[in-house]
Design a protein around this nucleic acid. Structure first.
Lengths: 290, 290
DNA sequence: TTGCTCCTCACGTCACGTGAGGTGGC
DNA sequence: TTGCTCCTCACGTCACGTGAGGTGGC
């Protein structure tokens, strides 16, 4: 409605309010180099750029945004996510920050366990922990299994695998019952950075045809090397030592891995029962070998 | 003593024990690319490299070292530090890991506060927090001060500045007494990543000549803009809002910064007294201006 | 006209990932 | 001989820092 001078939003903001990149950098606590980068990325373009000199000019009101960016970067938020926060309304921005921080805390929690594990490994002799495991070999007949497979990080693993086990177990009951020990196959590593995939397998009677609600497949007969774990040994990251023990044994034998590692539950209904009945042994960690 | 076959350390390790990079990568949970990098850096050179093909061959016993490296990298330890851990005896390695992890925890603790701060800023209106501060201006006469200056991270700031204040205060007493409010000048930012420097200043009688045990200098007379803080407002990271409030005010006035920001204690003996006597106001945050 | 600010390359850092294009080993 | 493994560049990623060499603004 006012005289159209091309400037959106500001009624009468004088040109003298514009700040050079140096002043703007000090006020916003960002380096000039960072500001040039944010300009190139479109994250924080200057209010005005002199067409001949290329000089960047920022508006006072941009200091607040720049400060927010500086704070978010101090939280190690990637610039792509920073851009989302900047673009979103305030409330949504707060949610995104909360999400980012929750992810950081999950990651750090995993690393905290790992750090303790590494320290105790280094200070406490090293070999002794592995020596405690007895590796055995057994033949596993082929099985018909109901399965669910998914990518999960270590923080989501327990929740998901319990839920999947429950779903598959109840499906199995409808098909004549669970015909063997429940197991999980790890096709890829599962930790703070890597997400598998993981497959939960519930054996059923081979004679029964599956219903389409869950994937049904044959797990082929094989020979496997395994160790049996107590509840304490099954905790992350201690369980890594169990995997290491089996791998060392296989290497020492000159045997060959022919499949992804797996955990076979010893107690029916898996970990939930284990918690309430506190058995002395909860599961086996195994590698198929030739 | 055995037949010298050129292999150091192993009495009778057959060549068949050597592993190709692919197998070694799987066993150690490192990528081949990472292994090649560690070779180039001298961090984990293969036991043997075929001179014509360039093929890398690793010894079984190197798997353990490679695993350790993989674990340390999962803790985000830089390769330079990883190299130190690998080279050090086990006990020393455990210490280095503990040190690294302690540093991570300190950093994360600071970021945790900051994340909460950013969230509340975004969800809670934003401007209201700044509006609470009343910015005033005053003239400060020139002062003779005893000082100590150092680079400190935010985690070390409180401990160091209390200790320095005590040292300087007792020196000042020997020189006729503390002649004014104790203050700290921040020449650079102090946070999880940046370490100042910071200078603690204790005013003394200008007529007294200093002794060489502490630096003595004149802090020139100046005009400064300041806000007065309650103990809650002085906590990190809330105190950042106070700095912001002063800076905004200065910008709004079109005034010019002519010195580094400073915190001036309102209570004698600084923060220690503040804790026991719980005053309603602890310190001023100020910027010299023209 | 002299400083000072600001400009754009270009390269370095960190720890790899991702092809390209070629070759050794069984 | 056919796959398969492994090789070395070379470039990309991420968020900048650090000069080099030059120019606009007051």
């Amino acid at each position: 409605m006012s005289a159209g001078n091309g400037e959106a939003g500001g009624a009468a903001e004088p040109a003298s309010v514009l700040l050079g990149i140096g002043v703007f950098a000090r006020r916003s606590r960002l380096s000039m180099k960072a500001l040039r980068l944010y300009d190139r990325l479109g994250l924080l373009p200057p209010a005005d750029v002199d067409p001949r000199s290329g000089y960047r000019r920022y508006r006072e009101s941009q200091v607040e945004t720049a400060r927010l960016i500086a704070l978010l970067r101090r939280l190690d938020m990637p610039l792509a996510q920073v851009a989302e926060v900047i673009a979103a309304p305030r409330g949504r921005g707060a949610e995104l920050v909360a999400d980012h921080w929750a992810a950081v805390e999950r990651r750090v929690a995993g690393q905290r366990e790992l750090a303790a594990h590494v320290r105790s490994q280094l200070s406490g002799g090293g070999q002794e922990r592995l020596a405690r495991f007895v590796v055995r070999v057994r033949e596993v007949p082929d099985q018909q299994v109901l399965t669910e497979q998914r990518h999960v990080l270590v923080s989501e693993l327990e929740t998901w695998s319990q839920a999947a086990t429950e779903r598959l177990t109840s499906s199995a009951r409808a098909l004549g019952g669970v015909a063997g020990a429940v197991f999980r196959i790890f096709y890829g590593e599962v930790n703070e950075d890597s997400d598998g995939p993981v497959e939960v397998c519930v054996p059923i009677d081979p004679a029964v045809a599956g219903r389409p609600e869950a994937a049904v497949r044959r797990e082929p007969a094989h020979r496997e090397a395994y160790v049996r774990l107590t509840p304490a040994q099954y905790e992350f990251p201690q369980v890594l030592s169990a995997y290491e023990a089996v791998e060392r044994w296989i290497d020492a034998q000159g045997a060959t891995y022919i499949g992804a590692p797996r955990e076979i539950d010893l107690v029916p209904d898996g970990y939930a029962t284990a918690l309430t009945e506190s058995p002395t042994e909860v599961c086996d960690v195994a590698y198929p070998i030739r």
